[in-house]
Simulated assay, not measured.
Amino acid sequence: MGELYYQRSSALFAELDGINDDLHIEKNQPKGKIIISAPINAGSQFLRDIFYDFLLQYPEIQLDIRLSNTLIDIEAQAMDVVFRVGNTVVDNWIARPLKDIHFILCSNSQTVADSVKHPTDLCAKSAVICQPMSIWQLVNKQNDDTYDFQPSKGIRLELDEIQMLTHAVKKGLGIGYIPDYYALPMIAQGEIQHVLPDWQSKARTLFMLYRDRDHLPLRVRLFIEYVLARFEQG
């Protein structure tokens, strides 16, 4: 009887020792996998190099990155860190602002942009829509007037990816509502042109979401601190 008890209990204690070892590693060693969710464009524009440089600095950490423009259930999919633009209401998650983004109106370089004097003139123009930004929320930078325009006629193309939106605008398929960080370099190069330059969207902020830092594995805390430091550097 004693020998049987010893055999069964020793296996249990070995398993408990293994769990303790795993927990010790999680808390004290920079290794393991971090599961991350981010919007497609933010992931490829702002975050890509940060992800790569972090991995180079911590060779025993792996990143599992899920890029999507859909608001996923981050609890059900067991995310460690989530990046979102605008919508940040998640119970029991901390949201840290990283960067403000403005959307501006653009057309291809051959379109006569001067024919659009006010957002009401957009009704007569073709449009390219990028979900979920189907309503173009505009603010006048000079007098703070606001105007929400939802294209309903002349929609030539609907998609959910900023790079394709910009290419469609550049090809002349219609006016598009494009993030300033993406559009302004192309405007400066003459590839597209700014429509209604006195108007832009209200600031939409890119946030990083994560759980209470006191209970995070070391690898996740290191990642959070790394991202915050990179955005503080500009």
Rank of each mutant, 00 (worst) to 15 (best):
P185G: 05
A14M: 13
A183C: 04
V90P: 00
M208C: 03
I19E: 15
D212P: 03
P30Q: 07
R8V: 13
E225L: 05
A76M: 05
V89G: 13
L98N: 02
P119V: 02
D21A: 14
C123R: 13
M1I: 14
A188S: 11
R8E: 11
Q62S: 14
V227S: 04
G172R: 05
T70V: 14
F51L: 09
D145I: 02
L23H: 04
Y182F: 15
S37M: 06
V82L: 00
I192Q: 08
G32D: 04
K27H: 10
N92V: 08
F149Y: 09
W199R: 02
M164C: 07
I178P: 01
H102I: 01
L184M: 09
R84K: 10
E60H: 10
S109M: 13
L216E: 05
A38D: 02
P39I: 03
R156V: 07
L157W: 12
N143W: 12
P39C: 07
D144G: 00
E158L: 09
F149I: 02
A113R: 12
R96W: 15
A127P: 01
Q142F: 15
I74D: 04
G2E: 11
I155M: 04
M208H: 04
S10F: 08
Q137G: 11
R221T: 11
V139D: 04
Q193E: 08
A203N: 07
D121H: 10
E191L: 12
L209Y: 05
S107K: 03
V112G: 03
M133L: 11
P119R: 03
V139N: 07
I25C: 06
Q193T: 13
I104P: 01
I192H: 06
F207G: 01
Q189D: 12
L12H: 10
D22I: 12
L228R: 05
G32A: 03
L184Q: 12
D80L: 00
S134Y: 13
D144C: 07
K171S: 14
Q131Y: 15
G174E: 02
I65P: 01
K153I: 06
R211L: 06
E15W: 07
Q193P: 03
S44Q: 11
L228S: 11
V195T: 03
T166C: 08
N87R: 11
